[in-house]
Design a protein around this nucleic acid. Structure first.
Lengths: 139, 139
DNA sequence: TCTATATATTTGCGGACTCAACTACTTCAC
DNA sequence: GTGAAGTAGTTGAGTCCGCAAATATATAGA
């Protein structure tokens, strides 16, 4: 069917992804979380010992180091995460997932997954597999 | 192959699209254009008589009306677009593509298309068709 | 050891965008 | 007509984020 040119395809992709982000951000807002904040918790959850350097967080989220600083500051104040020093290297400050952060993450993940499912609901099983293959080969 | 859960799929999708936007924004910056500014020119180019209401522009770009105001103000100052009143309805102010706006758009479109092609280069013909079908059914 | 370079983080400044409130105009019900 | 409600657009305040510069620490080379 529709064969779009590369530029049209990418514009359509950004449009549709933007829509997804807005839906998901709205779902997360019920838990008092922003989209990036959720991704931080998600990264920490997956990380060994739920602990990460700020710079690695920045890379995984494709953000600048300063963006991470400003994102994490309020999260530390509300107790979602905690700061921890690295005895081997005084430059780095590790970020850890707090117990309440883990709880909020678990709760918000339900909303997030529901939002993701509703966003993808127009897609059949094969289309989802295709999309998964496409995004991994674009990464 | 890889079958991701809905939430993982959407996270991967936003990550990859974010990467695309950054590449394209960088390509457009050589023409002095931001990503949203390029999309404005693109909309106006496609519009009948290269003319649109600000509110319709906002909807097509999934932006707020105030975002459009702030986006268009500098574009008008640099002469990419022009303001025009609507004789039938004094509330609306039409936005038109200027000659220089059309020229800049044509030039930047080359860079944009090249960026889009380079972003999609890991994808075969079938994958592009699949992706096109997927984004249209998600719209 | 001392200096140069590299790395991790924070801060000042600014851009892009949103929400809510406001102005200005139009339309509809009566 | 006149008032109420709706629509188009702008403005003020605030959020999120990036870039460049500054700070602090680490590492490598003479």
């Amino acid at each position: 069917m529709a064969s779009l040119k590369d530029d049209e395809l990418v514009v359509a992709l950004t449009t549709v992804t933007d829509k997804a982000q807005k839906q998901l951000a709205s779902a997360l807002s019920y838990h008092g979380l922003g989209f990036s904040e959720y991704l931080v918790l998600r990264c920490l959850q997956k990380a060994p010992a739920h602990k990460m350097r700020r710079i690695d967080l920045a890379q995984q989220l494709s953000m600048s180091a300063s963006g991470i600083t400003r994102l994490l500051n309020p999260m530390e104040k509300t107790g979602l995460i905690a700061k921890e020093a690295n005895p081997r290297d005084a430059r780095v400050s590790l970020v850890t997932l707090s117990a309440s952060g883990a709880r909020i993450f678990a709760e918000s993940s339900v909303s997030f997954a529901a939002g993701a499912t509703s966003f993808l609901e127009g897609l059949g099983k094969q289309a989802r597999k295709d999309l998964a293959g496409i995004v991994t080969s674009l990464t």
